[in-house]
Design a protein around this nucleic acid. Structure first.
Length: 586
RNA sequence: GCACCCGUAGCUCAGCGGAUUAGAGUACUUGGCUUCGAACCAAGGGGUCGCAGGUUCGAAUCCUGCCGGGUGUACCA
């Protein structure tokens, strides 16, 4: 619809002035119209006329367009277009573009490390990454969600050191004494102890360095039997079990974990194969000289011969390509890895330019505590992922409701998603997970309300003994995670054909019609927060409509029911892109 | 030092080349439930968009400089 109009406006410009211009319609405030164009200002200089004069000439041409019911010239020369009611109904039926149809996309995010705790930042990146993956999927891509994490490396050695110290030796039997529900916390505590020892105690530090090598060695030798290996593999599995349980709780699922132990050998091999042409030896380490490209120089293989994170990431990129033969790879990490990642990608570009070009690195900010307190897993003053969920659960309980994970997750996810990705997130345990105003539960409530109206309408049509009309079909409660099926939405909009809307009705159908444009924008930019902003406006529009317009029993009931149904479906679709469920009751 | 990111109401954030009063939420002050769900709606106060220049018909938005904060800067991830 928007593109169609833009094309028609361009045609009008060409016919009138015989010049080209980039026409881009915007959505003005409702009082000014449905679309606004600034072509007159753009053309002003080129045509040597003042913008209002151009706009006045264009106005009658645009008034002739089928989709347009009125045109106003406003301000310095804006053309405000008002759509016909039929056009609004039509806009509300358009599906988002399948711009990625047939493309294979690998989305990597979350990336927690085994042997360490899941903190609020992991929750954040999981939620945002999941939503971005949903956007890619909606655009028609075949999306593979994968996870990358360090099952080898210094953090593992630190944790292992503390465990062995606690056990008084390499005694895997004692693992049986750790209660299953405390595995994660127990390992997190060991990590903190190991990290402190590493910093404060020289002999411990030396021991940890040795353990680090032994962990790599254990992988090389495929050792599952030695006491040391038994402790390692058991704890590693505990970590993955803990991740799985967590992802299950927040409603996301990964297809594959890429442990570093798996990408390390391939990375090592790849980097070594390109020594001389891409990577250089320097002080006993293998580095990539990023300075030639205006970047940092970074170590890929350290002087111990072990791969650093850089080499592991090189291996990961290649492994993903082998596994999925992707058209595009999206990697989501924290901001602090921005410059680091450009070094890795620049080095890959030297021998696999396409691979580097098809990789998109998106970054997000830190989750910080109110007052700018920085979290440190070493000091243990971190906000764990479960703490965030627990706080939100308390807030829901405080409303006198039984705890409902749908609402809890709705609140948490929305509070993370509504901010543009990139900046830091300030998390205030008390207020951040709000249930009122611009919040997830507000949207869920606005959905439940609409469903309740639809349900009541269905009841009363039974009570009247009236025949169940096919166009008054109301979907019964479905699994909240299921996308609305399209046939029912066509039923809904069918009742709207040829209707002349009253004010509140028109506002609602107008807003519904923006959905597709917003989704397309969010997909193009991979920015889920656009969906949040829109959905909140949509729900607000509905709540105002609901306040002022009786639905059930009104003489315009049929029209209004159709509107409410289309609205509820749109809201549910949008929420599903955010990974938020739309309950029928709450 | 150099590189990158950020600075919009008390607080948390949208807006990222467009306009008539710079928008939301929250907090604060008020009004609205015998009528489809008040986790809602309506009204009010609150901002020289960090500062200073520049480009433009038009700048919170683009450019430059400065101030403030954060991150990165060779064997951590």
């Amino acid at each position: 619809m928007k593109q169609e109009l833009e094309k028609q406006i361009l045609a009008a410009v060409q016919a009138l002035f015989n010049v080209d211009v980039h026409v881009e319609l915007s959505r003005p405030e409702e009082q000014f119209g449905d679309y606004a164009s600034n072509v007159a200002m753009q053309l002003s200089k080129q045509l040597g006329k003042n913008p209002r004069e151009i706009a006045d000439q264009l106005k009658p041409k645009l008034e002739e367009l089928d989709l347009v019911s009125g045109v106003e010239v406003a301000g310095p020369g804006f053309l405000n277009l008002k759509l016909t009611d039929a056009a609004l109904v039509q806009a509300a039926q358009i599906e988002p573009a399948k711009s990625l149809a047939g493309k294979v996309v690998v989305a990597e995010y979350s990336d927690p490390n085994p042997f360490k705790v899941l903190h609020a930042g992991h929750l954040y990146t999981s939620v945002v990454g999941d939503s971005i993956a949903n956007l890619l999927e909606l655009a028609g891509a075949e999306v593979h969600r994968v996870n990358f994490g360090g099952d080898v490396g210094m953090h593992v050695a630190k944790t292992m050191w503390a465990i062995i110290k606690q056990f008084g030796g390499e005694d895997p039997q004692q693992l049986n004494d750790i209660p299953a529900d405390q595995h994660a916390e127990w390992m997190a505590a060991a990590y903190i102890e190991g990290t402190n020892a590493f910093e404060d105690d020289e002999s411990a530090k030396a021991e940890i360095v040795v353990l680090n090598k032994r962990v790599y060695q254990l992988h090389n030798e495929n050792d599952h039997d030695s006491p040391f290996a038994q402790i390692y593999w058991t704890c590693r599995q505990w970590a993955y079990d803990y991740f799985d349980a967590f992802y299950d709780r927040i409603g996301t699922k990964f297809e594959k974990y890429y442990p570093e132990s798996q990408t390390a050998p391939l990375g090592l091999e790849t980097v070594r194969a390109h020594i001389g042409e891409v990577y250089q030896e320097s002080d006993g380490a293998i580095v990539f000289d990023g300075e030639k490209h205006g970047l940092h120089t970074r170590v890929f293989i350290n002087s111990e011969g072990l791969p650093t994170y850089e080499a592991k990431d090189v291996g990961l990129v290649i492994l993903k390509k082998r596994d999925y033969n992707f058209d595009r790879s999206v990697v989501i990490t924290g901001n602090e890895q921005l410059q680091y990642m450009s070094v890795v990608l620049k080095s890959i570009e030297q021998f696999e330019p396409e691979l580097a070009a098809n990789t998109t690195h998106l970054t997000h900010g830190l989750v910080k505590l109110q007052g700018g307190v920085k979290m440190s897993s070493r000091k243990g003053n971190i906000l764990r992922a479960v703490d965030v969920l627990d706080e939100a659960t308390e807030a829901v309980k405080a409303l006198g409701q039984s705890e409902d994970d749908q609402i809890v997750l709705g609140a948490v996810k929305y509070s993370f998603l509504r901010q543009r990705m990139g900046g830091d997130i300030v998390y205030d345990p008390k207020e951040s997970v709000s249930l009122e105003g611009n919040s997830g539960p507000y949207l869920q409530y606005a959905h439940a309300r609409a469903r309740s109206v639809l349900a009541r309408a269905a009841e009363s049509s039974h009570a009247d003994g009236a025949q169940l009309r096919s166009d008054a079909h109301v979907p019964q409660a479905r699994s909240a995670s299921v996308l609305p099926d399209h046939p029912s939405s066509h039923d809904a909009t069918a009742a709207l054909n040829g209707v002349e809307f009253e004010n509140g009705e028109r506002s609602l159908i107008r807003k519904i019609g923006e959905y597709t444009e917003v989704v397309n924008k969010a997909v193009n930019e991979l920015m889920p927060h656009h969906i949040c902003t829109y959905l909140y406006e949509l729900a607000q529009t509905f709540n105002r409509f609901y306040e002022n317009n009786r639905v059930v029993g009104d003489e315009r009931e049929k029209i209004r029911l159709a509107l409410v149904q289309r609205y509820a479906e749109t809201l549910r679709s949008g929420l599903s892109l955010l990974g938020i469920t739309a309950p029928d009751k709450m």
